[in-house]
Amino acid sequence: MERNLTMVALFAALIAALGLVPSLTLGFGVPITAQTLGVMLAGTVLGAKRGALAALLIVVLVALGLPLLAGGRGGLGIFTSPTAGFLLGWPLGAFVTGLITDKTRQLPLSVSAIIGAVIGGIGIVYLCGVIGMSIVLDKTLIEATWLVTAFIPGDVVKAVLAGFITQGLAKARPQSVLTRH
Rank of each mutant, 00 (worst) to 15 (best):
I135L: 14
L107N: 09
G75Y: 01
A117I: 11
A52G: 06
V60C: 05
G129W: 07
G154P: 10
K49T: 13
T80S: 14
F79G: 10
G132P: 11
L69H: 05
I100K: 08
G77S: 14
L88S: 03
L147R: 04
R50V: 00
G116I: 10
L92G: 03
I78Q: 02
A48W: 11
S81V: 06
L92P: 07
I124F: 03
L76P: 04
F86P: 12
L87I: 15
I100S: 08
K103N: 07
G116F: 13
W146K: 12
I115K: 00
G72K: 01
V118R: 04
L137C: 06
A150Y: 13
T145R: 00
Q106I: 12
M133T: 09
T83Y: 03
L127H: 04
V59G: 12
T104I: 07
G132E: 04
L68K: 05
I122P: 12
S112D: 01
W146A: 01
R73D: 09
W90K: 03
T97E: 03
Q106M: 07
G89C: 07
L46F: 07
S112P: 11
T149Y: 06
I142H: 13
D138Q: 15
S81A: 15
S110P: 06
G98Q: 04
C128P: 01
I114Y: 00
L87P: 11
R105L: 08
V156S: 10
R50H: 05
I119G: 09
L56C: 11
L64N: 08
I122T: 08
T101F: 07
D138N: 15
A52I: 01
G77H: 12
G93E: 12
A55C: 03
